[in-house]
Design a protein around this nucleic acid. Structure first.
Lengths: 223, 223
DNA sequence: TCCAAAATATGAGATATCTCATATTATTGT
DNA sequence: ACAATAATATGAGATATCTCATATTTTGGA
């Protein structure tokens, strides 16, 4: 982890202003943190000292269950907050946050800003909006996972993450995210290839029949 | 649906004050609504005109999927808000809300109060807290549903809903809530009886081995 | 009071998904 | 450059869960 100082910090403050999210001057309190790929930004079970706002990069939210299974709850991306649970709730079991690319965040120290933030309607409105979307998404994911087999959820995931017809997510990550075993994921990917929806090219997959995948993903839609 | 007027309204305003959730005088705007058991308070896909706050009773949040499957997303109980998604988000697919007991709510009309509420730090702080808990709970339910078989989640549900050692939820409701088929729910209940955890008494079940059920439920714990 | 609808119950067979074992192939740190 | 670790791959057998069919019982409303 690296904390940007002086000019470098200043550059980020100017380029990615979040002043509009607050009705008090926030800049002076902002730290700019950089995390490397795979670095743990927040350890599971530990309380962070900052509210974070993502400027660049992606991260993953993990939780470990008693039986040792790990769930990838969600991805965090540009313009998301994290650490907001700990800002609002004195008691909270903190999830682990791991950078999946190099990540640059604004870090707002609780000890200097908690009171101000909790009094600021502009900020709280943004935060409530963010939380309402988050909660809606989780509810959607929850009901989808109960109502549809992997086939549908995987099709959706492939479409969301594919880049120019190439799908190349790590199987291990996808298993944690979609909550299925490695074995089963490979079965369903193999089915997609058999049916001609995908074509395996080395360690990647090329989308061959977009329509079919869209059809499978579409039934999830609604909310 | 019945709207309480004059004295009856006044009685509820006095007995269940929510003035402390706002920093502006809210009382004058509050309507007091009563809904009968099984009545739909909000129709799926329709936008409500009020933010609701539950005084008495319980309700269920439903969503219908394209394949016709219905999911019971969650229960709403005393002191919960609903309609807050529509307050915050101009675009939102509204879930259906159905009273499961007689329900009495404060209804805060959007057209008179939206602006005030969205400027009120005290209210927004409460709302953000409420949403953060909701989102955390959904995340927990999501990962649990992916990581544990029905056995564990049902044990937890039985313990949470049993009243004086008697479990008597409707199977149909439980299926929608836990996202399993009717058939499978009955299988697992039958197993619990075979193992002696439960004893069937007419249409109810009596808890016989609390410890065993707690053991099954405990592995969900964490967050 | 009676009928239709809802809820409960159970069997049989299918399938979605898991666990475990075992190889092979990348990737990473020293 | 090499060894250790992580990721990919595949088979075989188990189990969690679903679908469909069918019967009985309970319940709400005309």
């Amino acid at each position: 982890m690296e904390i940007y100082r002086t000019e470098k910090r200043q550059r980020y403050l100017e380029e990615y202003s979040i002043g509009n999210l607050f009705s008090f001057p926030i800049e002076e309190f902002l730290e700019v943190h950089e995390y490397k790929r795979d670095e743990w930004i927040i350890q599971e079970g530990m309380r962070p000292d900052f509210l974070f706002y993502v400027i660049e990069g992606k991260a993953k939210i993990y939780v470990t269950h008693q039986n040792g299974k790990v769930s990838l709850i969600n991805f965090i991306k540009e313009e998301d907050f994290f650490g907001e649970m700990e800002l609002l709730n004195p008691i909270y079991y903190t999830k682990g946050i791991q950078a999946s690319t190099t990540m640059i965040c604004f870090a707002i120290p609780f000890h200097r800003c908690r009171a101000k933030m909790l009094e600021d309607a502009a900020f709280l409105r943004e935060l409530a909006k963010f939380l309402s979307v988050k909660s809606t998404q989780m509810a959607a994911k929850y009901t989808q996972s109960l109502s549809f087999p992997l086939e549908n959820r995987l099709a959706d995931f492939i479409l969301q993450t594919a880049d120019a017809e190439i799908y190349k997510e790590k199987h291990v990550t996808v298993c944690d995210f979609l909550g299925v075993s490695y074995r089963h994921l490979l079965y369903v990917l193999a089915q997609f290839c058999e049916k001609g929806y995908l074509k395996k090219e080395g360690r990647h997959y090329r989308i061959q029949q977009l329509n079919e995948l869209e059809g499978l993903a579409r039934v999830l839609l609604n909310e």
